[in-house]
Simulated assay, not measured.
Amino acid sequence: MKTALIIRHVPYEGVAGYRAPIEAAGYALDRIDVADPAFSSLDLREPDLLIMMGGPMGVYEQDRYPWIACQLKRLRHRLDADRPTLGVCFGAQMIAAALGAEVYAGPRKEVGFHPIHLREAAGETPLRHLADVPVLHWHGDTFTLPENVELLASSAIYEHQAFRRGSNLLALQFHAEMGEDPRFHEWVQQWPESVVEAGQDEESFRATHDALGPGAVQAGRSMITDWLSAVA
């Protein structure tokens, strides 16, 4: 059986809705937290699939989170070997940084459910499943586009929402895995100021999640199924 490793940067950011299509593709899922003492010695080239999830930290906060520099160094080795890798939100920002891009704080938070705008080239990619589907966004950082990648999606606030390199690398700024996972409510509880900053209130935001979340997750699962069918 193929192996898939989830790197979890904080306990409330897991693989969520992506678990089902990953396991259906024949991967045995394992997980490691960056706080685990074993994480610093882990060879990130080994798993058949590496999945890096989100977190509230910034790639540029390496003085505060020393493990970021350690992870970036080993991630570069994996990307140099073109091993199948998926990054979500902070995970996507880590991929961008490992490929030489700049990650920085954006001018405003992007929090809420709204569709991404697919670039012309994305019509023939796994992201086509997300066309016109509102998905969850929850971030304030963004990044310059790395060299030799294909930009797949933008939003009204941030241009760089998704990119790929060949068939083995997919980076997603948004959270199409979230919509049925109860950890969403922990996000709202942890960062109520982000909800307010985005012009919403907690009650209406939770109602929007309940209404739009299942459709977002269904589309996200189709996207991951499609992507995994093509990885080398």
Rank of each mutant, 00 (worst) to 15 (best):
S194Y: 06
D181R: 03
V34I: 14
A230P: 01
W187M: 01
D36W: 15
S154R: 13
F174K: 00
K2Y: 10
Q71Y: 11
L151P: 03
E193W: 10
V59D: 00
A176N: 04
A105G: 12
G213I: 04
K73H: 15
Y104D: 09
A176V: 05
H77M: 15
A101M: 06
V88E: 02
W191G: 07
G199N: 08
L170A: 09
I68C: 12
G14T: 14
P192T: 12
E203D: 02
Q189I: 07
E180F: 01
I6M: 08
F184Y: 01
R74M: 14
F184Q: 00
I7P: 00
S204Q: 07
Y65A: 07
L86Q: 09
E177M: 04
F174Q: 00
E159L: 08
R76S: 03
T225D: 13
A97K: 03
L99K: 01
A162W: 06
D226Q: 10
M53T: 15
L127D: 05
C89A: 07
V103S: 03
D226G: 08
V188I: 09
V231K: 11
L49G: 10
G106K: 07
R128G: 05
D201E: 14
S194E: 13
S41Y: 14
V133G: 00
G58V: 05
E23W: 13
N168G: 10
L169E: 07
H185P: 03
H160G: 02
G91E: 09
A207S: 08
I68S: 10
A171I: 12
A38F: 06
D201R: 08
V196S: 14
G199P: 05
L169I: 11
L72C: 07
V34R: 05
K109V: 06
L42P: 06
A153E: 09
T225G: 07
F39V: 11
G26A: 14
F39S: 09
A232H: 15
F174V: 02
R165M: 04
G14S: 12
M52R: 09
A20F: 15
L42D: 08
L172W: 11
E177T: 01
E120A: 13
H160N: 13
R165E: 06
E61D: 13
M57C: 08
G112M: 12
D201K: 08
G112P: 07
H117M: 13
D43L: 14
L170E: 06
I7F: 04
R74A: 14
D36G: 12
Y158C: 10
P146L: 02
H137S: 03
A153S: 07
E124T: 13
Q173D: 10
G100D: 00
L130Q: 01
S229P: 09
M52C: 09
V188L: 01
T85F: 04
M94I: 03
